[in-house]
């Protein structure tokens, strides 16, 4: 594998609320190689969006990084000055938001918004040059050049999302974080956008962190996959391998929540219960209350994420000490 572009070490991030600190991301570590496509899957409230915002240093006012390191291209972003972070954002790492379609300013033309981003980061670039680049980018995401001067409301949802991808790519970043970029879109449009992202990633060799709850989509498109539950990564490894042989009971439950389009239709069950309250997480494994295979040890201490095979990590006592 090539060098790592992003290394996250023991990251703890969350929010200060009236009821105490909420650790939405709790002691999380992983790394991302250049050009790699990592998928992060989890349900709402598992901390996947907080992770994305923490990496981008875009946490809201009451959000903060409590401890840990985010090493991006060898530089720890935690504790960096706001001005330096701002320079890096968009330039070297960018983000496509879930509600990206609403992230566009409704009263500005697409062209103006793209030109603004460029002018903010590349001092002295002429409007003409910037417009030319904007047109190129739109072409890359399959939007006809004559739409350059359209207003957001004149575009369909899928087109707006593609404009956001163009905007995220326009400064040629090394890393793009995509937070549920296709969730609000129809399947056909989603498919087109996924295809586009894949095509562009191969062409420009950027890394992608793709966050969604749609596991079946992630398995299909990611190189490696992280499954998050209640602020922790509970399983990590190559996407196809996780799909074929999920280890953690939660992953198994998730896999059991997506009936296949082809092949046998056995009984699919889902996972009864609901995720824990992160203000008062359970003492042991966070999945303990919902787990079918819980043991005594499980409610005493959260199991560590340890190697269970080649490039494969699972945080479950079933794989630690032969309790199988």
């Amino acid at each position: 594998m090539a060098e790592n572009i992003l290394e996250i070490k023991h990251l703890v991030a969350g929010y200060e609320t009236r009821l105490g600190s909420l650790l939405a991301v709790d002691d999380l570590s992983f790394s991302l190689a250049k050009g790699e496509f990592i998928g992060i899957a989890g349900e709402s409230g598992c901390g996947k969006s907080t992770l994305a915002y923490a990496i981008m240093s875009l946490l809201e006012d009451n959000g903060m990084i409590f401890s840990g390191e985010i090493n991006f291209k060898g530089k720890n972003l935690v504790g960096l000055k706001k001005a330096d972070l701002k320079k890096m954002r968009w330039d070297q790492m960018s983000m496509v938001f879930q509600s990206a379609m609403n992230a566009l300013n409704p009263v500005l033309k697409i062209s103006d918004q793209l030109v603004d981003v460029m002018q903010a980061h590349q001092k002295g670039i002429s409007v003409k040059k910037a417009r030319q680049k904007a047109a190129e980018m739109l072409e890359l995401v399959d939007i006809p050049v004559d739409r350059l001067d359209a207003y957001p409301h004149q575009l369909s949802g899928g087109m707006k999302q593609r404009v956001m991808i163009a905007m995220a790519m326009i400064l040629n970043p090394d890393l793009i974080i995509m937070d549920e970029p296709t969730t609000a879109l129809d399947v056909v449009v989603q498919r087109n956008i996924i295809k586009k992202i894949e095509e562009l990633r191969i062409k420009f060799d950027f890394s992608v962190i793709f966050i969604t709850h749609d596991l079946s989509l992630l398995v299909e498109i990611s190189d490696r996959l992280a499954i998050m539950y209640a602020g922790k990564i509970i399983e990590f490894g190559q996407a196809q391998r996780i799909y074929e042989q999920p280890e953690h009971p939660y992953t198994k439950g998730l896999m059991n929540s997506f009936p296949p389009l082809l092949g046998d239709l056995e009984e699919f069950g889902g996972i009864p219960g609901k995720p824990p309250d992160l203000l008062k997480p359970p003492a042991g494994c966070r999945f303990y209350p919902r787990c079918e295979k819980r043991m005594d040890i499980c409610h005493q201490k959260m199991p560590d994420l340890i190697n269970t095979g080649q490039e494969r990590q699972t945080a479950c006592y079933l794989y630690q000490g032969g309790h199988k």
């Binding site: 349900e43 709402s44 709850h213 749609d214 596991l215 439950g253 998730l254 059991n256 929540s257 997506f258 009936p259 699919f268 069950g269 889902g270 996972i271 009864p272 609901k274 995720p275």
Partner: peptide
Amino acid sequence: DVSIRMIIM
């Protein structure tokens, strides 16, 4: 959430 969709179905 995905884990409860099947339960409802």
